[in-house]
């Protein structure tokens, strides 16, 4: 079912790492799609596979990793492409911004050089055109005095400014899809607010699809149209943002929402999820969340749950969803 409007369709994505102790699965059976002009948030804690998922879309997995399934971008399967073909798309039609803007900018080149580079390579502009375009881009992402900034080096900019430069570079080729991996985690809250607003504003202006990876449910609520929750390498729940926050179905999603201290509610009492995150390669049998789950049944300890449709556009990988299924008469997959 190829949707006219979807930019990205990931189906049954699995990523395994070869290690000395054997193959370790990092992502298993992840499926989701991103529409034009839509923000899809992938939420989860460390080791859940959210960053590996985004790196596979960019074709940036290390050599020790092996990906299977399909990642269709604009109808073409990225996993079937050669490195050279992917290079044509990466930075051009799909762009990415990372958590640490300092390590993703090259310290020995000026900001101007780095913003102009993709313009010359992908958009085939002349030096002079590229310069003017770069100034325009820096202006668009809200950098004051862009001509002066063009001559500066990354260390001369603050964290927020560096992230703006990264966004300018990511947008330079008018991508159809922007992947942002924890773009504001290293920034202060007042700067975070600026950057999130900027990403949403640019999405409105250009109509690109955005995949935003984060661990912060607050960021999800403020930006997402749809949300994918990941735990231990699997997508455990998917829903539109409204539904996810108002009617979460997976016990992990519920726990995640409860364990976040509320800024506005003084009566709120801390409710941690007991236990710890499983390490890749040491996954428990059955549902990976069952050792920490209050609702775990005998079945959860032996049999990995299927994905159940629990409402329109709302899926949950939890055996509890089986009862829900009766009410909605939905289908179940994988």
């Amino acid at each position: 079912m190829q949707d006219q409007n979807s930019v990205l369709e990931v189906e049954g994505l699995g990523v395994r790492f070869r290690t000395e102790e054997g193959d370790v699965p990092a992502v298993q059976g992840a499926s989701f799609s991103v529409q034009r002009g839509e923000v899809l948030c992938i939420v989860g804690e460390s080791g859940c596979g959210k960053s590996i998922t985004s790196l596979s879309v960019m074709g940036l997995l290390p050599d020790s990793a092996k990906a299977e399934g399909s990642i269709r971008f604009d109808g073409n399967d990225l996993l079937a492409m050669s490195q050279e073909e992917i290079r044509q798309i990466r930075g051009n039609e799909v762009s990415m911004i990372f958590q640490e803007p300092m390590t993703s900018l090259n310290p020995v080149f000026t900001v101007g050089f780095q913003v102009m580079e993709p313009l010359v390579i992908h958009r085939k502009l002349s030096k002079r055109e590229a310069y003017e375009e770069a100034v325009r881009l820096l202006e668009q992402v809200g950098i004051p005095d862009p001509r002066k900034r063009m001559e500066q080096y990354p260390h001369e900019l603050s964290g927020g400014m560096r992230q703006r430069v990264m966004i300018a570079i990511a947008l330079s080729c008018q991508p159809k899809l922007l992947i942002a991996d924890e773009p504001t985690t290293a920034l202060d809250v007042t700067i975070q607010a600026q950057i999130l607003d900027l990403i949403l504003k640019l999405k409105e202006e250009t109509g690109m699809g955005v995949v935003l990876i984060t661990h912060d449910m607050g960021v999800v609520a403020e930006t997402a149209d749809r949300v994918v929750v990941m735990y231990a390498g699997k997508v455990v729940e998917e829903a539109d943002a409204e539904t996810l926050f108002q009617d979460p179905k997976h016990p992990y999603t519920k726990g995640l929402l409860r364990s976040m201290p509320s800024v506005d509610d003084e009566t709120y009492a801390l409710e941690p999820i007991p236990g710890k995150l499983p390490k890749p390669g040491e996954m428990p049998q059955g549902c990976p969340f069952h050792p920490r789950c209050d609702d775990a049944m005998d079945r959860c300890r032996v049999e990995s749950p299927r994905v159940f449709t629990v409402g329109p556009g709302h899926t949950s990988r939890c055996w509890l969803g089986e009862e829900e299924k009766q009410n909605h008469a939905g289908k179940s997959v994988g």
Partner: peptide, 15 residues
Amino acid sequence: AIPRPVPGRKRERII
């Protein structure tokens, strides 16, 4: 400036 886990909240954010 703190993002709240409430989607669609009409925010009068001071940026």
